[in-house]
């Protein structure tokens, strides 16, 4: 089969969102967050206790899934290098909207302890839309759970709209991304 068929290389149309079921949709989305099991940095070590017996995020309806196609939430767990950012962008664009991004720790906010690193980015929201920030280095699982609760509230009230912002301002995000990813060997759009 033609390789081109495996991803869509065209700009996504403007998404309509809402309709009759909007209230039910938001309610269901808030209570069934599937997290893509992809750890970008040191913070993913805190996600294991969050999702297993001790802190049990499953009672909030959350689950880890192994593929971006089925996931709703992308967790940027800690510092993000340029090499990882490339993969993160692909993962984010392969997720089906509505989708949400949670940034974990100090590094995605302002570079954290890697603010002068030659390889870690300083501000995540220049490259991806972030819905919830969780501070700390690293945040404890309690803080992560609190962040997820906040995300649920935002979704419930229809304010977690980062994925819409991303599509509307895609060119702005692309310009920022291409500024640090010099060799763009990816399809233009791959969702």
């Amino acid at each position: 089969m033609d390789k081109k068929n495996y991803f869509l290389d065209e700009k996504p149309e403007k998404l309509t969102y809402g309709g009759v079921f909007r209230k039910i949709d938001d309610w269901a989305r808030a209570r069934s967050l599937w997290v893509v099991a992809y750890g970008t940095g040191c913070g993913s070590i805190e996600l294991r206790p969050t999702f297993t017996s001790r802190f049990d995020a499953e009672r909030l309806g959350m689950r880890m899934v192994g593929t971006p196609r089925q996931a709703d939430v992308l967790i940027i767990s800690g510092y993000l290098t340029v090499k990882t950012l490339k993969r993160v962008i692909r993962v984010y664009e392969q997720m089906q909207s509505p989708k949400y991004v949670v940034a974990l720790g100090a590094c995605p906010i302002n570079g954290g302890m890697y603010y002068d690193s030659y390889n870690a980015i300083n501000q995540l929201d220049l490259y991806l839309p972030v819905d919830v920030w969780i501070t700390g280095c690293m945040p404890r699982p309690e803080a992560i759970l609190a962040g997820f609760k906040r995300l649920q509230e935002l979704i419930d009230s229809g304010r977690a709209d980062g994925w819409k912002k991303y599509i509307e301002n895609l060119d702005w995000y692309r310009e920022n991304q291409r500024k640090i990813i010099k060799n763009w060997k990816m399809p233009n759009y791959n969702w």
């Binding site: 039910i24 309806g61 089906q96 909207s97």
Partner: peptide
């Protein structure tokens, strides 16, 4: 969940998941 000594999701969780999945956007063609 109970056997692993945690609370676990509600028994209606699968219905919520089903609704959410059904109403998500699908944009993949293979």
């Amino acid at each position: 969940a109970r056997m692993q000594n945690r609370r676990g999701p509600t028994v209606w969780q699968n219905f919520i998941d089903l609704w959410k999945l059904f109403r998500k956007k699908t944009a993949v063609s293979h």
